[in-house]
Simulated scan of single mutants.
Amino acid sequence: MSVLLLLLLSILQGVTELFPVSSLGHTLLVPALFGVQLDHHAPALLPFLVALHLGTAIALLWYFRIRWIAIAQGFFGSLRGRPSDDGHLAWALLVGTIPAGLVGLWLEKPLERLFHDLRIVAFALLVNGIVLWLGGRRGDDEASERAPQRLTLVQAALVGLAQIGALIPGFSRSGLTMIAGARVGLTRKAAAEFSFLLGTPIILAAGMLELPKLMHDHAQLATAALGGVLTGIAAYLSVRFLMGYFEGSGRLASFGIYCIVAGALCLGWFALHPLAA
């Protein structure tokens, strides 16, 4: 893998994993638009892309390190019969993580086949944009009228269910969970924080599960390690920006417009250049 392509894929992963625009969709589509042919059938491609998630997970753990320490303390405190808000949040994150984790393991092979047709990925990106635009506009309007509230375990499970849609390349995990968080009563900033906290175990687990597939190829492993570092830097800068963006007047629906335009342009490009898909 060339250094330039490594830089491109790693930075794309770090930025788009947290921005609600689908990291895997962009990682598959952008190289094709620039005439870079990725071998979608190569057995090491998907493990490499997923291994980049480790960089994102480490960046999220570092950015929210104080929050995670409090969550861990609250979790162990709840096991000893000392309930707290942090302990409740720990259980909410655990409950929210289960649905996507189980479905991802169950449908791993069928979902991998979707990566091989970029027209499906582009269409999913367009639909993701429509969902973000509709859900984001409604959520933004309602968020201003609601105060943040502590999620019940049922509400946390509903937000977790939204992650399942992101198993399809082109759909955004962070976007879907932010919309779901707004629908159950969180403000934009609280929904973004819960989305990033909820995504950390999934992102970390995905990277850890795929990493052994690269162990037999030391060159590929070294490339993945370098890519992970670059991804982590991009992810850290992204989460800093997004938390400030949603704390202010930032609107999730704006990302929906981008995804609609990008998905439509990609579909048009592949219609004119079918071999690129």
Results as ranks from 00 to 15, higher is better:
Phe246Lys: 10
Leu125Glu: 00
Glu247Cys: 10
Leu105Gly: 13
Ile202Met: 13
Gly35Tyr: 09
Leu167His: 07
Arg119Leu: 08
Arg119Glu: 08
Leu93Thr: 02
Ile202Gln: 09
Arg113Tyr: 14
Ala32Lys: 00
His273Asn: 14
Thr177Leu: 06
Gly175Thr: 03
Leu125Arg: 10
Val95Pro: 00
Glu142Gly: 01
Leu18Val: 06
Leu38Ala: 10
Val3Asp: 10
Phe48Trp: 11
Tyr258Leu: 04
Ile203Asn: 07
Ala180Phe: 09
Ala143Ser: 15
Ile98Val: 15
Gly160Lys: 08
Ile69Lys: 13
Trp106Val: 15
Gly136Cys: 06
Leu267Tyr: 07
Ser84Lys: 12
Ile98Tyr: 07
Ala276Tyr: 01
His41Ser: 15
Ser238Cys: 14
Gly74Ala: 14
Gly14Ala: 04
Asp117Cys: 06
Lys109Leu: 12
Leu125Cys: 10
Ala100Asn: 00
Ala277Ile: 04
Ile98Asp: 02
Gly263Trp: 04
Ser172His: 00
Ala70Glu: 13
Leu221Pro: 03
His53Tyr: 10
Ala206Lys: 07
Gly228Trp: 01
Leu267Ser: 03
Thr231Ile: 07
Ala122Asn: 05
Leu79Asn: 13
Ala191His: 00
Gly74Met: 14
Cys266Gln: 03
Leu107Val: 11
Trp133Ser: 11
Glu112Asp: 13
Leu8Asp: 04
Gly165Gln: 01
Ala222Tyr: 02
Val229Asp: 00
Ser249Thr: 12
Gly181Met: 07
Glu193Phe: 05
Ala166Arg: 04
Ala205Trp: 09
Ala219Leu: 14
Phe241Lys: 08
Gln73His: 15
His116Tyr: 10
Ala264Cys: 06
Leu125Gln: 05
Leu24Trp: 00
Gly101Ser: 09
Ala222Ser: 12
Ala157Trp: 01
Asn128Gln: 03
